[in-house]
Write a protein that binds this DNA or RNA. Structure first.
Length: 882
RNA sequence: GGGCGCGUAGCUCAGUGGAAGAGCACUCGGUUUACACCCGAGCGGUCGGCAGUUCGAACCUGUCCGCGCCCA
């Protein structure tokens, strides 16, 4: 609040006012403003600065991606946080970048090649990887330009990519450290396999949907020794190596330990007892296919069963016989038909069951037994959980904690090897005599004959998980790392809490000697369509935020999304919402325009107390309250409420009342040096200055345009964040304006009911019955378009408002019926009020047990209602009979 | 099947024990020292049902109904 306006700047502002168009045209100013911000270095953080750091790393979007509405929400939130911190005097770093999205990117480039009938194998590994880099250079990173468009204050000088030299070093360093610590191991397990991408996937890269299927019951064996099993994947029976029953299941006691012939094959398989079989499910007997089902794999391990693989990498049958080479979905009915021919199908039932799909290409994943590299997550996950449990890392909103714990406390080991070419190649070398060597970043790999490197690459998440510190230079001890780690806030949608938060926490705590990667985790919800439905391509309800930016401006998109951003909860959004936000931008545009047209300026100091009118004291009091409220809401990440408070203040208080009242003091032609006009100009300028600064983190473009025009200063981006001044609180002034509002609204209602046009001036005699209203007659007259009674004044209607009696000469008869109806409605409400309050006050328990403050409130309510009844009753009696 | 959450105005949502709120939509009326992307006034709700606790319940408890999401 110590901003000053130089006379020269004021002159510039005056001329700017005359050139401000009547409506805000965002698209015309946004690009230019953003370039200027970047060029002036406002977003470039300085590691050598004395200011306390505040860091947000952007959860890196995918290099193949483009900005969707969820990104737009998240980045609006992150930018609102960081811009406020910058204004508060922190050394604010908001670090941009992207991840290399192994599978997605490889898929894109492979599709390109496929157009020419080529596969990556035709090119060979090295040429293919080069091709991907070429693709990235030409088409990748579309999202970065879209982020600029949104206006987010990212430090582009620090842009990072997970495949960059430095970040690749970090990956190799991390792998080596974990390998040496025994946290990375190689093992043959059941993994999720995508038969289209031809790679292993981790659990979180698989999406489960319910799909219709058929549960078939198959009889294995014959006569007394036969046993019936049920399956929805009949083709896997070719790989069965046992039938399992619960050890206590009395139905099968006589069969445990015996063998049964496996149909369609020449094999006999044992009937085994295993505690994990649910005797209640189906027949209580299950077929066991250890190489193609995770549960069966565990049974197989416990019982040392053979684990034959019956599907190749494309999920085609590899078992010799009639099914050889069939795709799994072809083989399924074929196997059932063959079994039916033998009379072995004893039941068929339709059912819905969850089916896993590759999150990148939607192909049904196949559980597959294979050798992969794994991260042993247990110690890492425990540390990640403890960091939250002991309060070093706070999750906002707190209600999201159980979701986090559910993840970190139940995490399975993580498959990190991918059978891809695009990514960080696993730094493991195998020797001719089964040697295995992990090569660190500063080491030379073995070059003797017979040595070769593991052909797999690492999960993209292995590198993204390092993001909060690899982007700051780790493993080098850089100035950035010293200054900006740990980061301050990690913000993302709750739907991917396990992607970002859990992985980054595990790696950060481990790599940085137990120092958490971020102090706070802030979670927001999903953006849904206007009916609250999740957006999806198949539903066709996906909206493109860029279209909204074209139509309404970036600020409108940001404000619209922030206004719905209640912590951790989903929000519905639609064109109308964004349009409303655009209207709001236009409203503050025009408020500032009005102010500047009337000579408003930002004073070095507010006028002395004795110069301030009651409306000045009121709006300054409210401003101070709003500063405190909004500041607290931003600090608590309650953006929806912060936006609501600002919207209400700007529109309903500043525009609808303060500016309207200011017209009394700033009439056309008022002298430039009129003392009271100067006071009004100073207060109005000050209020707008502070209001714009409060809004700036949410709506950077329009506030920059208006603020620089109003103040003549360099940029609101680097302006100081407002601080509340409790000394400005003035409850008495607030009460006066509230009383004015009551009278004015009551007269307006009367005028509307009587069909008096808004523009029509009406002669009236005012009798102020409330002492608070002393001196407010001109204000009431202005806002109600009431002229002074002249000779021949004859009241045709008398309105007894709460604080004033208003006798009006409407120059004609009034609509008695309409007036009677309205008054009777008021009377009925007051009577109901009296009834309710009387009942409460007649209740001894209430009087005895309710707090005094509540009892007093009810007493006051009763008194008010009774006086309303008297007032309105008198008015009714005074009406001419209809 | 297990866990978490939600049901408040036509729509989307605030509201954690003391008079039911907002935005949008809707109705009526409007060329006002900025703004029709506007101004003024208004309509609209047994707070999912039932039962309980309490002087007092949208809010606490139980139960039922409906709808999401995550995990098996």
């Amino acid at each position: 609040m110590n901003e000053t306006t130089t006379p020269a700047a004021q002159g510039a502002a005056d001329s700017a006012a005359t050139t401000l168009p009547t409506a805000y045209a965002p698209v015309e100013v946004e690009g230019e403003l953003y370039e200027r911000w970047v060029k002036n270095g406002y977003f470039t953080a300085d590691a050598a600065s004395d200011k306390p750091p505040f860091t947000i790393v952007i959860p890196p979007p995918n290099v193949t991606g483009s900005l969707h509405v969820g990104h737009a929400l998240n980045q609006s939130i992150q930018d609102a946080i960081i811009r406020r911190k910058r204004m508060q005097g922190f050394e604010a770093l908001y670090l941009p970048g992207m991840d290399h999205a192994g599978i997605a990117t490889q898929n894109v480039v492979e599709r390109e090649l496929a157009k020419d009938g080529l596969s990556r194998h035709d090119l060979g590994r090295e040429a293919f990887v080069k091709k991907v880099w070429d693709w990235k250079a030409e088409y990748g990173g579309k999202i970065l330009g879209q982020q600029r468009r949104l206006g987010v204050s990212l430090d582009w000088s620090r842009e990072r990519f997970t495949m960059d030299e430095g970040l690749s070093q970090a990956v190799q360093t991390m792998f080596k450290k974990m390998y040496d610590d025994g946290l990375i191991y190689r093992a043959e397990r059941i993994i999720n396999w995508c038969p289209r991408c031809l790679t292993a996937l981790s659990d979180i890269e698989v999406d489960h949907f319910d799909e219709p299927g058929e549960l078939v019951s198959i009889r294995y064996g014959d006569g007394d020794d036969s046993i019936v099993v049920a399956t929805s994947r009949a083709e896997t029976m070719l790989g069965d190596t046992a039938v399992a029953v619960h050890p206590d299941d009395e139905r099968y006691q006589h069969l445990i330990g015996k063998e049964v012939a496996l149909p369609l094959t020449d094999r006999r398989i044992p009937i085994i007892a295993d505690e994990h079989v649910d005797p209640e499910f189906g027949t209580g007997a299950v077929k066991v296919t250890p190489a193609h089902d995770p549960n069966d794999f565990e049974i197989g391990r416990r019982h040392h069963l053979a684990m034959p693989t019956i599907l190749d990498e494309h999920a085609n049958i590899t078992v010799h016989g009639p099914f050889l080479g069939m795709d799994r979905f072809e083989a399924r009915p074929a196997v059932v038909a063959a079994l039916r021919e033998q009379g072995r199908i004893v039941g068929q039932k339709q059912l819905l069951r969850p089916v896993g799909h590759c999150s990148r290409c939607d192909t049904v994943v196949e559980p597959r037994l294979s050798m992969q590299w794994w991260v042993k997550v247990e110690p890492l996950a425990k540390a990640a959980g403890d960091a939250v449990r002991d309060g070093r890392v706070q999750i906002h909103p707190k209600e999201m904690e159980p979701r986090y714990f559910a993840w970190v406390d139940n995490m399975h080991d993580w498959t990190i090897s991918r059978q891809l070419w695009w990514g960080h190649r696993i730094p493991i070398w195998y020797g001719p005599n089964d040697e295995v060597v992990c090569v660190g970043p500063d080491e030379e790999p073995p070059s003797e004959d017979g040595w070769y490197q593991d052909s797999d690459v690492l999960d993209t998440w292995f590198s993204s998980g390092l993001w909060p510190f690899s982007t700051l230079g780790w493993p080098e001890q850089t100035a950035d790392l010293a200054k900006f780690y740990p980061t301050s806030v990690l913000h993302t949608g709750y739907d991917i809490i396990f992607f970002w938060v859990a992985r980054m926490m595990m790696f950060g705590l481990y790599a940085m000697d137990g120092v958490q990667p971020f102090d706070k985790v802030v979670l927001s919800g999903l953006v849904r369509d206007q009916y609250g439905k999740k957006m999806s391509k198949s539903k066709g309800n996906v909206v493109d935020p860029l279209l909204w930016m074209d139509k309404y401006g970036s600020d409108a998109v940001r404000f619209g999304l922030l206004r719905g951003a209640n912590p951790g909860t989903d929000q519905a959004i639609a064109d109308d919402w964004i349009g409303g936000a655009r209207n709001f931008a236009n409203k503050i545009w025009n408020a500032t325009r009005f102010a500047m047209m009337n000579g408003a300026f930002v004073p070095a100091e507010l006028p002395a107390a004795e110069k301030l009118t009651v409306e000045d004291r009121w709006i300054l009091s409210r401003l101070n309250e709003v500063v405190a409220e909004v500041d607290g809401l931003y600090e608590d990440f309650q953006f929806a409420k912060a936006m609501e408070a600002l919207y209400h203040f700007a529109w309903d208080e500043v525009c609808d009342w303060y500016i309207e009242l200011s017209k009394l003091r700033l009439p056309i032609g008022v002298a430039a040096d009129d003392p009271d006009a100067q006071t009004a100009r100073a207060v109005l300028g000050h209020v707008l200055d502070v209001m714009l600064r409060l809004l700036h983190p949410a709506v950077p473009y329009v506030t920059e345009t208006l603020w620089t025009a109003l103040t003549g200063r360099e940029s609101i981006v680097i302006a100081q964040w407002p601080q509340a001044d409790p000394a400005r609180t003035d409850k008495a002034a607030e009460a006066v304006i509230e009383a004015v509002q009551e009278v004015v609204t009551e007269v307006r209602r009367f005028r509307t009911d009587q069909g008096v046009k808004d523009t029509q001036r009406v002669a009236a005699r005012l009798t102020l019955t409330d002492a608070k209203l002393a001196g407010q007659e001109p204000a009431i007259r202005l806002l109600n378009r009431l002229t002074a009674p002249e000779d021949g004044f004859g009241a045709t209607a008398t309105l007894v408002a709460t604080g004033a009696k208003v006798e009006l000469d409407t120059s004609g008869t009034i609509d008695v019926a309409a007036e009677r109806k309205r008054l009777e409605k008021g009377l009925a409400a007051a009577r109901k009020e009296v009834e309710a309050a009387t009942a409460k006050l007649g209740n001894a328990d209430f009087l005895a047990k309710a707090p005094d403050a509540v009892v007093d409130k009810i007493r006051k309510r009763l008194a008010d209602a009774e006086s309303d009844i008297a007032r309105v009753g008198a008015q009714l009696e005074a009406l001419p009979s209809a």
